[in-house]
Amino acid sequence: MSSYYDVRVITREVENIREYPDIVPLVVPTQNCWRKLIKSEERFLRNQLKETELLHVNFGSIAIDLEDIVSRCAIPMTTYFLGVDASAALTDVEYRTRLKNSKFAAVFVNSEDMKKRLTPHLPPDMPCFVAYCGIPLERFPFKKRFSISDGVVFLQISRLTPKKGIEYTLKAFKRYVGEVDSRARLIIAGDGPLRENLIKLVSSLELSEKINFIGSVGYQQYIELLKNADVFIHPSVTADDGDMEGLPTIICEAMACGMPVISTRHSGIPELIDDRENGFLADEKDVDGLFDCMISLYEADVGSISQNARKKVEERFDHEKTIQILAGYMKDVIDNWDCASSTKKARLL
């Protein structure tokens, strides 16, 4: 985005900052950053907005909390809904009411499915645009997979939370090891609140020697995992509290690396995976369906699936293309805002 605008980033935490040397974020060191910002540091934010032409906020729930402050600064605000803010959060009556009365200059979502779900909760005249989250293709080298044989290595990388569907990965893998490939292995990278429960499930399934929980990984180890594993699995589900994915970027990254991906018909995932053409889809929470996807790899043209996966990401999820689309939408917002000047370079927050 810095290729199009003078951008300043305000955030509450920073990860992998070395991978983005051009960004120097302003970190607000509070445990509950945004609420404290709103209640006791309004002056701070308003000072940051003095020379700003557009405030762009990731997560609609945060944007809702900032709306009153930003409205007094007489600048447009856009927001990007990414998952929980367009799913579980909508079960809260107050949140839905505030959304319905919101005055965002525009709303962005990361899938057509999310747009369909969110639009009824927005003011009828509010612009809502699909802007996919792209990935930097140069960071994810393509390695064509040609076939699947015994000793296959499955990989899931995710937060260990309900919507990631890890328990269904484990149960499908149990059947796969018992009926198809006794030498298969499963690597699960990531951490989260379900870790202990999942480890107990692995033990009860008698899979402790086949499954390796390796915890959180750094960027280089992450790339090596994508490079060396055979099949990526990410069976997203709708959690009991309504929490849903948007369109998981990690699936894009695995496909860019040429990995056959097994996932679910959940949220925006079918906008990325074309079943049996560049990956495999099962229904949510369908262990038998996931198992069928696993054994289908033996009969599939894995080389074509691998190539098609990379091609799909190149065509629709290359970050150079997606950033250009998002920047164009933002330019329209600035140009059509009553107080915005179209004669000077925009500064965004």
Results as ranks from 00 to 15, higher is better:
Val9Asn: 04
Thr11Met: 09
Tyr20Met: 00
Pro21Cys: 11
Val28Lys: 10
Arg35Gln: 07
Lys39Gln: 13
Asn47Asp: 05
Glu51Trp: 14
Leu55Asn: 05
Leu55Ile: 14
Phe59Gln: 14
Ile62Trp: 06
Leu66Ile: 13
Thr78Gly: 08
Tyr80Ile: 14
Leu82Ile: 15
Val84Glu: 12
Ala88Leu: 01
Val93Phe: 06
Tyr95Lys: 02
Phe104Met: 03
Phe108Ser: 08
Leu122Thr: 14
Phe154Gln: 01
Leu170Ala: 03
Phe173Met: 02
Gly178Arg: 14
Gly190Thr: 15
Gly192Asp: 03
Arg195Tyr: 11
Leu205Pro: 04
Glu206Ala: 09
Tyr219Phe: 12
Ile223Gly: 05
Lys227Thr: 11
Ala229Cys: 14
Val231Cys: 06
Ser236Trp: 02
Leu247Ala: 01
Pro248Ser: 09
Ala256Lys: 05
Gly268Gln: 00
Gly268Glu: 00
Ile269His: 00
Asp274Thr: 11
Asn278His: 12
Phe291Leu: 10
Cys293Ile: 13
Cys293Gly: 06
Ser296Arg: 14
Glu299Met: 13
Ala300Arg: 09
Val302Cys: 02
Gly303Pro: 12
Glu315Met: 11
Lys321Tyr: 05
Thr322Gln: 04
Ile325Arg: 11
Asp332Ala: 09
Val333Tyr: 07
Asp338Ile: 15
Cys339Glu: 04
Ala340Asn: 10
Lys344Asn: 08
Ala346Arg: 03
